[in-house]
């Protein structure tokens, strides 16, 4: 039995491509000072966001982003059929507690830093499948909460290796509907979990690049398209190391992406000035760059069609300490302006 909304082996083709009605982004001070600073809806000037703890600050950013995206679409929380959200913290507490406040039917997601694209793909499926009118996909991350969970306390005097990435503080939200004005989600290629044996938790770009490349290649094979069919191919948070590896791996497969390929983790910071080493990472990295910068370019008509690939490193400190290697995943979503 064939599935009518699929092309090739793994790619979904939406019959009535859902519309991205609105997006919202909230970021911390460091992201606000970065090159994309003026594309974000809200820049918070204190990493505590007026809360007692960083965990509460992250949760508040996620709540603000969701409320903002609903307000931008001139809707109310009760108009939203589903909230799809996730974050990096254990048991995804930011998303769960934000959903407690918002009172919208909630599906919690965990795709590490690929969560935004996982959410967008699922939101598009819910809408094109006829199960929803309005779906919000959202996610958050916070440098200080991630540091203390995955690495060292923030005041520890340690040197970060040059391959380390800086977790983006912020939250992004995307509101989709079956009709309306805005860019449309036309395809999605769901990622496979790939593990190439990288064990260094300070080198996530190398760990994730093959998964992103796998998704991009399968997407091209399924749709019969190539790099020239896209104004931009953009990965989530491979950083400078992962971007270079991905470019090489795609080159080996005879896909020349040297002109139109970039990475959100590379764009979000000025790496020399902001001491962010290999680039940005975290759920919010691809989320706020999409909600701010990319959405802006799509609405302007500067980009007609982009392929975004949310990348995630599916590690935990327990697995790392037990000597496990780091599996990666990449979810691809095509958005047409």
């Amino acid at each position: 039995m064939s599935a009518p909304k699929r092309v090739g082996q793994h790619t979904l083709q939406f019959a009535n491509p859902p519309v991205i009605v609105a997006t919202a982004s909230v970021v911390g001070p460091k992201e606000g000072e970065g090159p994309l600073g003026d594309t974000f809806d809200m820049v918070v000037d204190d990493s505590y966001f007026g809360e007692e703890t960083w965990e509460k600050a992250e949760r508040k950013m996620l709540e603000e982003a969701v409320k903002m995206v609903i307000a931008k679409a001139q809707l109310k929380p009760q108009d939203i059929d589903f909230l799809l959200a996730g974050d990096l913290l254990n048991q995804t507490i930011s998303a769960n507690y934000a959903a407690r406040t918002l009172g919208i039917p909630f599906l919690g997601l965990y795709g590490a830093c690929s969560t935004m694209y996982e959410g967008m793909a699922l939101a598009a499926m819910l809408i094109d499948g006829g199960f929803a009118h309005h779906v919000v996909a959202a996610c958050s991350s916070h440098y200080d909460t991630a540091e203390r969970q995955y690495r060292f306390p923030t005041e520890q005097g340690i040197q970060r290796p040059p391959t380390a990435q800086w977790t983006v503080t912020g939250a992004g939200a995307v509101l989709m509907a079956p009709v309306g004005n805005g860019p449309r989600v036309t395809h999605a290629t769901i990622g496979r979990v790939l593990d190439v044996g990288i064990k260094d938790p300070n080198d996530m770009g190398s760990a994730m690049a093959p998964a992103a490349v796998d998704t991009i290649v399968r997407h091209f094979q399924d749709t019969g398209r190539g790099p020239i069919d896209y104004d931009l191919i953009i990965t989530g948070d491979l950083g400078r190391v992962g971007l270079e590896i991905a470019t090489k791996l795609l080159g080996e497969k005879k896909y020349d992406v040297s002109k139109n390929y970039s990475d959100c983790g590379v764009l979000i910071y000025d790496h020399e000035r902001q001491d962010t080493h290999a680039g940005g990472s975290g759920c919010a990295c691809s989320a706020v760059v999409f909600a701010g910068h990319l959405m802006g370019k799509l609405n302007e008509g500067r980009y007609k069609r982009i392929l975004g690939v949310g990348t995630g490193a599916l590690l935990s400190t327990t697995a790392t300490q037990q000597g496990e290697s780091i599996p990666g995943i990449g979810h691809g979503v095509v958005i047409e302006g």
Binding site: F152, I158, D200, P201, N202
Partner: peptide, 9 residues
């Protein structure tokens, strides 16, 4: 600097 990443502070 000269050993693998596993050597932490």
């Amino acid at each position: 600097d000269l050993t693998p990443y596993k050597v932490t502070p």
